[in-house]
Design a protein around this nucleic acid. Sequence first.
DNA 1: TCAAAACCTACACTTGACGTGAGGTTTTAT
DNA 2: ATAAAACCTCACGTCAAGTGTAGGTTTTGA
Lengths: 134, 134
Amino acid sequence: MKRVTKPQNLMKIGELAERTGVSHRTIHYYERLGLLKPHEREGAGYRYFDDEAAQRLEKIGALKKIGLSLDEIATVIDLYFEDPTGIRGKRRVLEILKCQLDETDNKLTELGRFRSDIETNIAKIESLIQQSKR
Amino acid sequence: MKRVTKPQNLMKIGELAERTGVSHRTIHYYERLGLLKPHEREGAGYRYFDDEAAQRLEKIGALKKIGLSLDEIATVIDLYFEDPTGIRGKRRVLEILKCQLDETDNKLTELGRFRSDIETNIAKIESLIQQSKR
DNA sequence: TCAAAACCTACACTTGACGTGAGGTTTTAT
DNA sequence: ATAAAACCTCACGTCAAGTGTAGGTTTTGA
């Protein structure tokens, strides 16, 4: 029988680490930076995480890969998981987002340029290799 | 009268730094990593750079912005400035380039996703601000 | 001509993003 | 009931990418 309303699939740090491939060290670190907020348990002081924590870690990884610093991630990560109705300082957040949109567009342009440079270079080198073969 | 064949517009580190906005400390650092090769002068041991050095610094900046490490940049920067005929280890370089092409495509996808997430969030927050205004 | 500005080397410090290890408590499996 | 496994905090270590500082030489411009 599954509880539909709130799964509350709580896990300890070890399981979260294994499931996400993020080391428990790193999870501790992210918590200190405010990227992750486990529900702490009274008893032993162990951290308990829900599924959202795993999703957060995934998202953090994706954002890191595209070049955001952990600090920058901290400013937007909640948008993915919190009801935006509750966000305080909406104007400020809006500004940040607009900056990020611009930056992202720049990165996209630059990355596209880089991509075609790589293709050009691959073609060049491949033809050189061909030539040297005969 | 302009010399067409070889401008050889040599400058010292200070000018290069000023022209590119990269500090002289950083230029020294990049040189140690092999990203830049000034023609050293016999006399006082001062470094002298040509215009290519400035272009290299631009390119390095662009590549950094899209998430390459200085080490990675070192493996490709010469492709932009050297005649590829002279590149040694063509096969190896080719492999690296192909990996980078894949990675770049992944980044492009991820970055596109991020971009549309930002747009969605901007729209959400904007409508919230509108609502709270009336 | 001589002091300030620019350059040199070399080493230490900083910051971001983790990792390691010690020393101790709590769970869990036998 | 007890040892191994998992957890905790705390403090130091590491690597990348620089920045800062010291102590000395060379250029340059008033």
